[in-house]
Amino acid sequence: MDTPIIRGTGLAMRFGARTLFHDVDFTVDAGEVFVILGGSGCGKSTLLRILVGLQPPTAGRAELLGSDMYGSSQDIRTRIGVMFQSGALFGSMTLLENVMLPLEMHTDLPPAARASIARMKLGLVGLGDATRLKPAEISGGMAKRAAIARALALDPPLLFLDEPSAGLDPITSAGLDALILDLRRDLGTTFVVVTHELASILAIADRCIMLDKTAQGVIATGDPKQLGETSDNPTVRAFFRREVLMSEGKEQR
């Protein structure tokens, strides 16, 4: 069996006396769409920040592509792409310039080649006709697509997406889900997606882990299409069945 592309071992995050999560173990295999899910405030985005190297964990180890994220050189950063929840496009640049930036910084390609590749990436996400627009001139869904194009600029084998569907209408959100599946199929990219949008999770995820604020850690791992039926955990069942979780652990439709 292949070595996992990501291995999280005993990951913990504490803020002072407050524990967000602890003992988080998981692996992500190459070519998977792996979803980190859970309710608000359970630490999904923090786990993502740990995995992309923006925040060291309080304890544990995050291995990406065979290297320790916090013990290796910066080179690993050129092998991952990140799409932030807001898109985080540079407002002073056009979409084309945004996508060209990683190519400009990390390659010796001539400007014409960079522009050509950037146009291709924007075309890949359906923004081939918006290359000259600035982030302020496009919609939220377009901004997320452009951010994916920028994250794909260097053809990384691993792409992290933070809440790709947040704030989008169901049609745009479904379009983004389809884009993720297309990119996985066409480029073989591995996706780690943080989301709590049930429809998206069921549409794209091969496997998932579910974090829970009360349990301060992982309460479920596996195929999301089955977790709602097979899990013994009432929170997991309530999440997948869109039920109200009663305080004493009973569920109610």
Partner: peptide
């Protein structure tokens, strides 16, 4: 503003 919009994080994750 760049920090709030996660643009600084984006730079860091791009290895810049």
């Amino acid at each position: 503003t760049m920090k709030v919009n996660q643009e600084v994080d984006a730079l860091t994750t791009m290895g810049l």
